[in-house]
């Protein structure tokens, strides 16, 4: 077969995703691929859409805030500061194991990737369990039906928890997939989910920051 050049790259140098049957071959193929995978771009679009949705929620929060003389309104308890800050700080650390998992998978380290994912998963689950408990606890003191402040407070916080829950489901699914070895498809998945978790963590930081701004 003659070596035609398309887009500056000869056909024989272009990696085929289906040629990686194990972690070692995936490592080699990933090294020959130019730029991020299609899946990564897809996830970037989903994240862009989600960020915009959260941006709209946050914009709503401040729109309502600047239309209201007292924020939170008199009689509605202020959000607690210290514990949520500590919790979100702990959650944010999971970006590290997620990134390490993606790096390990990229280098063919299947076991390392699994362990890093497990590390992240434990912290993420702990965060979510505590936060759901806390959410229910807060609902005893005030409810979304109280006023516009409570409405946006619980909606924004709840949306963020849902976001974390989706991220956790993705990590669980990844671990299940990785139990059966590494292919290009699964390598893409690890990289993509790691990226998603960076977005989740960043958004959670911003959301908690916004919600705590009511105490300033």
């Amino acid at each position: 077969m003659a070596d035609y050049i398309a887009g500056g790259v000869p056909e024989r140098l272009v990696p085929r995703t289906t040629e990686a049957r194990n972690a070692g071959e995936a490592k080699v193929l990933a090294g020959r691929r130019r730029g991020p995978s299609v899946a990564f771009w897809g996830m970037a679009m989903i994240v862009a859409s989600e960020v915009t949705l959260f941006g709209t929620f946050i914009g709503t929060y401040y729109y309502l805030r600047f239309n209201t003389p007292h924020w939170p309104p008199v009689g509605t308890p202020e959000p607690r500061v210290v514990v949520p800050l500590v919790m979100v700080g702990i959650l944010a650390t999971t970006s590290l194991p997620m990134q390490l998992a993606a790096r390990a998978a990229r280098r063919g380290g299947l076991w390392a990737a699994r362990l890093f994912l497990l590390w992240a998963l434990v912290i993420q689950c702990g965060y979510l369990v505590y936060e759901i408990h806390d959410y229910v606890d807060q609902l005893r003191r005030s409810v979304p039906q109280d006023n516009a402040y409570s409405s946006i407070y619980y909606t924004l916080l709840g949306a963020d928890h849902a976001h974390v829950a989706i991220g956790i489901l993705l990590v669980v699914w990844l671990l299940w997939k990785l139990a059966r070895g590494l292919t290009m498809y699964r390598l893409n998945a690890v990289q993509v989910v790691a990226f998603y978790w960076h977005a989740v963590n960043l958004l959670t930081l911003v959301v908690i920051g916004v919600l705590l701004s009511a105490t300033l």
Partner: peptide
Amino acid sequence: PVSSPVDGWWAEIVE
């Protein structure tokens, strides 16, 4: 085939 976003370099072949 999959290309790079700007220059259209051939990046990979996907199934």
